[in-house]
Design a protein around this nucleic acid. Sequence first.
DNA 1: TTTGTCAGTCAACACTTGTTGACACACACA
DNA 2: TGTGTGTGTCAACAAGTGTTGACTGACAAA
Lengths: 183, 183
Amino acid sequence: MDEPSTADKLRDAAQLAFWDNGYSNVSVRQIANAAQVDVALISRYFGGKMGLFEATLHKSFDLDNLPEDRDGLVELFVDIFSYAPRDTSSPSALRMLLINAHDDAVGPLVRARFEDMFTRQVARVIGNLPQAALFVAALFGFMVAEKTLHLPGIGEPGSPLYANQLRHLLHAALAFDPDVPNG
Amino acid sequence: MDEPSTADKLRDAAQLAFWDNGYSNVSVRQIANAAQVDVALISRYFGGKMGLFEATLHKSFDLDNLPEDRDGLVELFVDIFSYAPRDTSSPSALRMLLINAHDDAVGPLVRARFEDMFTRQVARVIGNLPQAALFVAALFGFMVAEKTLHLPGIGEPGSPLYANQLRHLLHAALAFDPDVPNG
DNA sequence: TTTGTCAGTCAACACTTGTTGACACACACA
DNA sequence: TGTGTGTGTCAACAAGTGTTGACTGACAAA
Protein backbone atom coordinates (compact mmCIF):
# COMPACT_ATOMS: atom_id res chain seq x y z
CA MET A 1 0.00 0.00 0.00
CA ASP A 2 1.34 3.35 -1.06
CA GLU A 3 1.94 6.14 1.36
CA PRO A 4 -0.79 8.73 0.76
CA SER A 5 0.44 11.95 -0.77
CA THR A 6 0.91 15.02 1.36
CA ALA A 7 -2.06 16.73 -0.26
CA ASP A 8 -4.22 13.69 0.52
CA LYS A 9 -3.09 13.64 4.12
CA LEU A 10 -4.00 17.30 4.42
CA ARG A 11 -7.40 16.88 2.81
CA ASP A 12 -8.30 13.90 4.97
CA ALA A 13 -7.30 15.65 8.17
CA ALA A 14 -9.10 18.78 7.05
CA GLN A 15 -12.31 16.92 6.38
CA LEU A 16 -12.30 15.31 9.80
CA ALA A 17 -11.68 18.67 11.46
CA PHE A 18 -13.89 20.92 9.34
CA TRP A 19 -16.85 18.57 9.25
CA ASP A 20 -16.74 17.99 12.97
CA ASN A 21 -15.97 21.42 14.35
CA GLY A 22 -16.83 23.88 11.62
CA TYR A 23 -14.66 26.00 9.41
CA SER A 24 -14.05 28.89 11.80
CA ASN A 25 -13.33 26.71 14.79
CA VAL A 26 -10.40 24.95 13.17
CA SER A 27 -7.02 26.52 12.47
CA VAL A 28 -4.70 25.56 9.66
CA ARG A 29 -2.06 24.73 12.24
CA GLN A 30 -4.37 22.19 13.89
CA ILE A 31 -4.96 20.52 10.54
CA ALA A 32 -1.30 20.51 9.59
CA ASN A 33 -0.48 19.09 12.98
CA ALA A 34 -3.02 16.28 12.62
CA ALA A 35 -1.69 15.48 9.16
CA GLN A 36 1.91 15.61 10.39
CA VAL A 37 2.72 18.13 7.71
CA ASP A 38 4.10 21.66 7.66
CA VAL A 39 1.53 24.47 7.73
CA ALA A 40 2.95 26.31 4.78
CA LEU A 41 2.07 23.42 2.49
CA ILE A 42 -1.61 24.20 2.86
CA SER A 43 -1.16 27.50 1.10
CA ARG A 44 1.12 25.90 -1.43
CA TYR A 45 -1.14 23.02 -2.40
CA PHE A 46 -4.60 24.47 -1.91
CA GLY A 47 -4.05 28.20 -2.11
CA GLY A 48 -5.07 28.71 1.50
CA LYS A 49 -7.54 27.63 4.13
CA MET A 50 -10.58 28.24 1.96
CA GLY A 51 -9.17 26.21 -0.88
CA LEU A 52 -8.56 23.33 1.48
CA PHE A 53 -12.15 23.48 2.67
CA GLU A 54 -13.47 23.42 -0.89
CA ALA A 55 -11.29 20.41 -1.58
CA THR A 56 -13.03 18.54 1.24
CA LEU A 57 -16.38 19.39 -0.33
CA HIS A 58 -15.50 17.86 -3.65
CA LYS A 59 -14.93 14.57 -1.90
CA SER A 60 -18.25 12.76 -2.11
CA PHE A 61 -20.89 15.24 -1.17
CA ASP A 62 -23.28 13.61 -3.59
CA LEU A 63 -25.64 10.75 -2.91
CA ASP A 64 -24.95 8.05 -5.43
CA ASN A 65 -27.37 5.38 -6.56
CA LEU A 66 -30.43 6.89 -4.99
CA PRO A 67 -33.47 4.58 -5.12
CA GLU A 68 -36.10 5.70 -7.59
CA ASP A 69 -39.14 4.92 -5.43
CA ARG A 70 -40.28 6.78 -2.35
CA ASP A 71 -40.43 3.81 0.01
CA GLY A 72 -36.93 2.85 -0.99
CA LEU A 73 -35.78 6.35 -0.21
CA VAL A 74 -37.22 6.17 3.29
CA GLU A 75 -35.62 2.82 4.01
CA LEU A 76 -32.29 4.03 2.66
CA PHE A 77 -32.13 6.91 5.10
CA VAL A 78 -33.39 4.79 7.97
CA ASP A 79 -30.56 2.38 7.26
CA ILE A 80 -27.98 5.11 6.90
CA PHE A 81 -28.99 6.76 10.14
CA SER A 82 -29.24 3.50 12.02
CA TYR A 83 -25.99 1.90 11.01
CA ALA A 84 -23.82 4.61 9.52
CA PRO A 85 -20.19 4.29 10.48
CA ARG A 86 -18.26 7.48 10.82
CA ASP A 87 -17.39 8.11 7.19
CA THR A 88 -17.72 10.69 4.49
CA SER A 89 -21.29 9.92 3.42
CA SER A 90 -24.54 11.01 4.94
CA PRO A 91 -25.46 11.61 7.64
CA SER A 92 -21.99 13.09 8.06
CA ALA A 93 -22.63 15.39 5.14
CA LEU A 94 -25.91 16.55 6.67
CA ARG A 95 -24.17 17.14 9.95
CA MET A 96 -21.36 19.09 8.37
CA LEU A 97 -23.93 21.21 6.52
CA LEU A 98 -25.64 21.97 9.80
CA ILE A 99 -22.39 22.97 11.47
CA ASN A 100 -21.12 25.20 8.68
CA ALA A 101 -24.38 26.61 7.33
CA HIS A 102 -24.29 29.68 9.59
CA ASP A 103 -20.62 30.46 9.07
CA ASP A 104 -19.96 33.80 7.40
CA ALA A 105 -17.07 32.46 5.36
CA VAL A 106 -18.36 29.11 4.07
CA GLY A 107 -22.10 29.27 4.81
CA PRO A 108 -23.17 30.52 1.39
CA LEU A 109 -20.99 27.91 -0.29
CA VAL A 110 -22.30 24.88 1.56
CA ARG A 111 -25.90 26.05 1.39
CA ALA A 112 -25.72 26.49 -2.36
CA ARG A 113 -24.07 23.13 -2.64
CA PHE A 114 -26.83 21.45 -0.65
CA GLU A 115 -29.67 23.13 -2.52
CA ASP A 116 -28.16 21.88 -5.74
CA MET A 117 -28.07 18.30 -4.45
CA PHE A 118 -31.57 18.65 -3.03
CA THR A 119 -33.27 19.77 -6.22
CA ARG A 120 -31.21 17.54 -8.49
CA GLN A 121 -31.52 14.32 -6.49
CA VAL A 122 -33.97 14.17 -3.59
CA ALA A 123 -36.71 16.42 -4.94
CA ARG A 124 -36.54 14.68 -8.29
CA VAL A 125 -37.30 11.17 -7.04
CA ILE A 126 -39.97 12.42 -4.63
CA GLY A 127 -41.54 14.42 -7.41
CA ASN A 128 -43.41 16.83 -5.16
CA LEU A 129 -41.59 19.88 -3.90
CA PRO A 130 -43.51 20.58 -0.67
CA GLN A 131 -43.26 16.91 0.27
CA ALA A 132 -39.56 16.82 -0.58
CA ALA A 133 -38.89 19.87 1.55
CA LEU A 134 -40.74 18.32 4.47
CA PHE A 135 -38.80 15.13 3.93
CA VAL A 136 -35.43 16.76 4.39
CA ALA A 137 -36.82 18.87 7.22
CA ALA A 138 -37.67 15.64 9.01
CA LEU A 139 -34.23 14.31 8.23
CA PHE A 140 -32.49 17.35 9.68
CA GLY A 141 -34.77 17.55 12.67
CA PHE A 142 -34.16 13.95 13.58
CA MET A 143 -30.44 14.46 13.23
CA VAL A 144 -30.48 17.53 15.45
CA ALA A 145 -32.59 15.85 18.10
CA GLU A 146 -30.40 12.79 18.24
CA LYS A 147 -26.88 13.67 17.14
CA THR A 148 -26.47 17.14 18.59
CA LEU A 149 -29.03 17.43 21.38
CA HIS A 150 -29.05 13.77 22.45
CA LEU A 151 -32.65 14.23 23.48
CA PRO A 152 -34.07 11.65 25.85
CA GLY A 153 -36.98 10.08 24.02
CA ILE A 154 -35.08 9.26 20.85
CA GLY A 155 -34.15 5.60 20.79
CA GLU A 156 -30.62 4.31 20.53
CA PRO A 157 -29.30 4.19 16.96
CA GLY A 158 -29.88 0.67 15.67
CA SER A 159 -32.80 -0.02 17.98
CA PRO A 160 -36.31 -0.69 16.66
CA LEU A 161 -37.63 2.41 18.42
CA TYR A 162 -35.06 4.58 16.68
CA ALA A 163 -35.84 3.20 13.24
CA ASN A 164 -39.58 3.42 13.79
CA GLN A 165 -39.38 7.04 14.88
CA LEU A 166 -37.42 8.12 11.86
CA ARG A 167 -39.52 6.02 9.48
CA HIS A 168 -42.70 7.41 10.95
CA LEU A 169 -41.62 11.01 10.50
CA LEU A 170 -40.32 10.47 6.96
CA HIS A 171 -43.50 8.71 5.81
CA ALA A 172 -45.55 11.46 7.39
CA ALA A 173 -43.60 14.03 5.41
CA LEU A 174 -44.27 12.17 2.17
CA ALA A 175 -47.97 11.92 3.02
CA PHE A 176 -48.40 15.67 3.15
CA ASP A 177 -51.11 16.96 0.84
CA PRO A 178 -50.72 20.66 -0.03
CA ASP A 179 -54.33 20.95 -1.15
CA VAL A 180 -55.93 19.79 2.05
CA PRO A 181 -55.98 21.95 5.18
CA ASN A 182 -54.29 19.98 7.90
CA GLY A 183 -53.09 17.77 5.05
CA MET B 1 -37.78 57.32 28.72
CA ASP B 2 -34.55 56.61 30.54
CA GLU B 3 -31.33 56.00 28.72
CA PRO B 4 -30.56 52.27 29.07
CA SER B 5 -27.60 51.49 31.27
CA THR B 6 -24.26 50.62 29.74
CA ALA B 7 -24.61 47.01 30.88
CA ASP B 8 -28.03 46.81 29.24
CA LYS B 9 -26.71 48.24 26.00
CA LEU B 10 -23.96 45.65 26.01
CA ARG B 11 -26.28 42.77 26.76
CA ASP B 12 -28.74 43.77 24.07
CA ALA B 13 -26.05 44.14 21.43
CA ALA B 14 -24.49 40.88 22.54
CA GLN B 15 -27.74 38.98 22.23
CA LEU B 16 -28.32 40.24 18.71
CA ALA B 17 -24.79 39.29 17.70
CA PHE B 18 -24.39 35.99 19.56
CA TRP B 19 -27.81 34.64 18.66
CA ASP B 20 -27.38 35.50 15.02
CA ASN B 21 -23.79 34.58 14.31
CA GLY B 22 -22.72 32.26 17.10
CA TYR B 23 -20.40 32.77 20.02
CA SER B 24 -17.11 32.13 18.24
CA ASN B 25 -17.93 34.22 15.21
CA VAL B 26 -18.44 37.40 17.18
CA SER B 27 -15.66 39.39 18.83
CA VAL B 28 -16.04 41.51 21.92
CA ARG B 29 -14.90 44.49 19.90
CA GLN B 30 -17.77 44.05 17.46
CA ILE B 31 -20.25 43.96 20.33
CA ALA B 32 -18.75 46.98 22.05
CA ASN B 33 -18.81 48.82 18.77
CA ALA B 34 -22.47 48.03 18.15
CA ALA B 35 -23.32 49.13 21.68
CA GLN B 36 -21.22 52.29 21.31
CA VAL B 37 -19.30 51.37 24.43
CA ASP B 38 -15.66 50.76 25.27
CA VAL B 39 -14.48 47.14 24.99
CA ALA B 40 -12.92 47.06 28.42
CA LEU B 41 -16.31 47.50 30.04
CA ILE B 42 -17.33 44.00 28.96
CA SER B 43 -14.71 42.49 31.23
CA ARG B 44 -15.57 44.94 33.98
CA TYR B 45 -19.30 44.34 34.02
CA PHE B 46 -19.59 40.72 32.95
CA GLY B 47 -16.19 39.28 33.81
CA GLY B 48 -15.41 38.60 30.16
CA LYS B 49 -16.89 37.36 26.92
CA MET B 50 -18.31 34.17 28.41
CA GLY B 51 -20.02 36.07 31.20
CA LEU B 52 -21.63 38.34 28.66
CA PHE B 53 -22.92 35.34 26.74
CA GLU B 54 -24.42 33.80 29.86
CA ALA B 55 -26.10 37.10 30.60
CA THR B 56 -27.87 36.92 27.24
CA LEU B 57 -29.07 33.42 28.11
CA HIS B 58 -30.73 34.53 31.30
CA LYS B 59 -32.89 36.88 29.30
CA SER B 60 -36.05 34.93 28.52
CA PHE B 61 -34.97 31.53 27.33
CA ASP B 62 -38.05 29.96 28.87
CA LEU B 63 -41.41 29.45 27.24
CA ASP B 64 -44.00 31.05 29.46
CA ASN B 65 -47.67 30.17 29.61
CA LEU B 66 -47.42 26.99 27.59
CA PRO B 67 -50.84 25.51 26.70
CA GLU B 68 -51.67 22.37 28.62
CA ASP B 69 -53.23 20.45 25.73
CA ARG B 70 -51.46 18.98 22.76
CA ASP B 71 -53.49 20.65 20.04
CA GLY B 72 -52.93 24.00 21.69
CA LEU B 73 -49.23 23.33 21.70
CA VAL B 74 -49.22 22.66 17.96
CA GLU B 75 -51.16 25.80 17.18
CA LEU B 76 -48.92 27.86 19.43
CA PHE B 77 -45.81 26.90 17.52
CA VAL B 78 -47.52 27.26 14.16
CA ASP B 79 -48.46 30.79 15.17
CA ILE B 80 -45.01 31.58 16.51
CA PHE B 81 -43.29 30.35 13.39
CA SER B 82 -45.77 32.03 11.07
CA TYR B 83 -45.87 35.46 12.59
CA ALA B 84 -42.90 35.76 14.91
CA PRO B 85 -41.27 39.17 14.78
CA ARG B 86 -37.56 39.28 15.31
CA ASP B 87 -37.44 39.23 19.10
CA THR B 88 -36.00 37.29 22.00
CA SER B 89 -38.59 34.49 22.09
CA SER B 90 -38.84 31.35 20.02
CA PRO B 91 -38.10 30.62 17.31
CA SER B 92 -35.13 32.88 17.91
CA ALA B 93 -34.16 30.77 20.89
CA LEU B 94 -34.33 27.60 18.81
CA ARG B 95 -32.25 29.22 16.13
CA MET B 96 -29.64 30.43 18.58
CA LEU B 97 -29.47 26.92 20.04
CA LEU B 98 -28.87 25.51 16.60
CA ILE B 99 -26.11 28.00 15.85
CA ASN B 100 -24.26 27.59 19.14
CA ALA B 101 -24.89 23.91 19.88
CA HIS B 102 -21.71 22.75 18.15
CA ASP B 103 -19.44 25.42 19.60
CA ASP B 104 -16.70 24.06 21.81
CA ALA B 105 -16.94 26.94 24.25
CA VAL B 106 -20.69 27.36 24.75
CA GLY B 107 -22.15 24.21 23.21
CA PRO B 108 -22.38 22.21 26.44
CA LEU B 109 -23.97 25.17 28.20
CA VAL B 110 -26.74 25.82 25.69
CA ARG B 111 -27.47 22.13 25.19
CA ALA B 112 -27.89 21.56 28.90
CA ARG B 113 -30.03 24.65 29.09
CA PHE B 114 -32.29 23.37 26.31
CA GLU B 115 -32.62 19.86 27.68
CA ASP B 116 -33.75 21.34 30.94
CA MET B 117 -36.46 23.36 29.24
CA PHE B 118 -37.44 20.39 27.10
CA THR B 119 -38.03 17.95 29.92
CA ARG B 120 -39.51 20.52 32.28
CA GLN B 121 -41.93 22.12 29.84
CA VAL B 122 -42.51 20.50 26.45
CA ALA B 123 -42.17 16.84 27.43
CA ARG B 124 -44.36 17.41 30.45
CA VAL B 125 -47.44 18.68 28.57
CA ILE B 126 -47.02 16.10 25.81
CA GLY B 127 -46.69 13.38 28.40
CA ASN B 128 -44.98 10.88 26.11
CA LEU B 129 -41.22 11.08 25.76
CA PRO B 130 -40.75 9.52 22.28
CA GLN B 131 -43.54 11.70 20.93
CA ALA B 132 -42.13 14.78 22.60
CA ALA B 133 -38.70 14.14 21.13
CA LEU B 134 -40.19 13.73 17.66
CA PHE B 135 -42.15 16.91 18.22
CA VAL B 136 -39.08 19.05 18.80
CA ALA B 137 -37.26 17.19 16.02
CA ALA B 138 -40.00 18.33 13.66
CA LEU B 139 -39.71 21.84 15.03
CA PHE B 140 -35.98 21.99 14.47
CA GLY B 141 -36.14 20.35 11.07
CA PHE B 142 -38.73 22.79 9.85
CA MET B 143 -36.65 25.66 11.14
CA VAL B 144 -33.52 24.42 9.41
CA ALA B 145 -35.31 23.82 6.13
CA GLU B 146 -36.88 27.25 6.10
CA LYS B 147 -34.76 29.66 8.11
CA THR B 148 -31.27 28.49 7.27
CA LEU B 149 -31.55 26.54 4.03
CA HIS B 150 -34.44 28.49 2.49
CA LEU B 151 -35.46 25.32 0.72
CA PRO B 152 -37.75 25.72 -2.25
CA GLY B 153 -40.87 23.76 -1.38
CA ILE B 154 -41.45 25.36 1.98
CA GLY B 155 -44.17 27.98 1.77
CA GLU B 156 -43.70 31.62 2.67
CA PRO B 157 -44.01 32.30 6.40
CA GLY B 158 -47.60 33.38 7.02
CA SER B 159 -49.00 31.56 4.02
CA PRO B 160 -51.51 28.69 4.37
CA LEU B 161 -49.06 26.26 2.81
CA TYR B 162 -46.42 27.14 5.37
CA ALA B 163 -48.78 26.70 8.32
CA ASN B 164 -50.17 23.46 6.94
CA GLN B 165 -46.74 21.97 6.44
CA LEU B 166 -45.61 22.70 9.96
CA ARG B 167 -48.93 21.63 11.45
CA HIS B 168 -48.87 18.41 9.49
CA LEU B 169 -45.40 17.47 10.68
CA LEU B 170 -46.11 18.37 14.31
CA HIS B 171 -49.34 16.37 14.43
CA ALA B 172 -47.58 13.45 12.81
CA ALA B 173 -44.94 13.55 15.52
CA LEU B 174 -47.62 13.47 18.23
CA ALA B 175 -49.33 10.54 16.51
CA PHE B 176 -46.30 8.31 16.81
CA ASP B 177 -46.99 5.05 18.58
CA PRO B 178 -43.86 3.41 19.99
CA ASP B 179 -45.55 0.03 20.25
CA VAL B 180 -46.53 -0.31 16.62
CA PRO B 181 -43.97 -1.02 13.88
CA ASN B 182 -44.24 1.81 11.39
CA GLY B 183 -46.15 3.55 14.20
C1' DT C 1 29.02 18.34 -13.68
C1' DT C 2 25.60 21.62 -14.17
C1' DT C 3 20.96 22.88 -14.27
C1' DG C 4 16.12 22.82 -13.21
C1' DT C 5 12.14 21.21 -10.71
C1' DC C 6 9.58 19.66 -7.01
C1' DA C 7 8.87 18.90 -1.89
C1' DG C 8 9.43 20.34 2.47
C1' DT C 9 11.31 23.42 6.46
C1' DC C 10 11.58 27.50 9.03
C1' DA C 11 11.13 32.17 10.58
C1' DA C 12 8.73 36.06 10.09
C1' DC C 13 4.86 39.12 8.64
C1' DA C 14 0.62 41.73 9.74
C1' DC C 15 -3.48 41.15 11.94
C1' DT C 16 -7.12 39.87 15.31
C1' DT C 17 -8.31 37.81 19.58
C1' DG C 18 -9.70 38.52 24.92
C1' DT C 19 -8.04 40.68 28.84
C1' DT C 20 -5.65 43.86 32.04
C1' DG C 21 -4.00 47.92 34.51
C1' DA C 22 -3.09 52.74 34.79
C1' DC C 23 -5.42 56.86 34.37
C1' DA C 24 -9.08 60.77 34.20
C1' DC C 25 -13.47 62.50 35.30
C1' DA C 26 -17.82 63.26 37.87
C1' DC C 27 -20.47 63.01 41.78
C1' DA C 28 -21.74 62.09 46.73
C1' DC C 29 -20.38 62.09 51.49
C1' DA C 30 -17.49 63.48 55.27
C1' DT D 1 -12.06 71.22 51.71
C1' DG D 2 -10.78 66.44 51.06
C1' DT D 3 -12.00 61.51 50.11
C1' DG D 4 -13.96 57.79 48.26
C1' DT D 5 -16.66 55.45 44.70
C1' DG D 6 -18.44 54.40 40.49
C1' DT D 7 -17.83 55.05 35.40
C1' DG D 8 -15.55 55.42 31.29
C1' DT D 9 -10.95 55.92 28.29
C1' DC D 10 -6.77 54.42 26.52
C1' DA D 11 -2.69 51.80 25.53
C1' DA D 12 -0.69 47.68 25.97
C1' DC D 13 -0.23 42.74 26.65
C1' DA D 14 0.32 37.71 25.30
C1' DA D 15 -1.56 34.48 22.41
C1' DG D 16 -3.36 32.95 18.23
C1' DT D 17 -4.75 33.73 13.28
C1' DG D 18 -3.63 32.93 7.92
C1' DT D 19 -0.11 33.77 4.76
C1' DT D 20 4.46 34.67 2.62
C1' DG D 21 9.20 34.19 1.11
C1' DA D 22 13.81 32.61 1.56
C1' DC D 23 16.00 28.53 2.11
C1' DT D 24 17.64 23.37 1.92
C1' DG D 25 17.76 18.88 -0.03
C1' DA D 26 16.64 15.21 -3.39
C1' DC D 27 16.31 13.71 -7.79
C1' DA D 28 16.23 13.71 -12.94
C1' DA D 29 17.57 15.78 -17.47
C1' DA D 30 20.97 18.12 -20.18
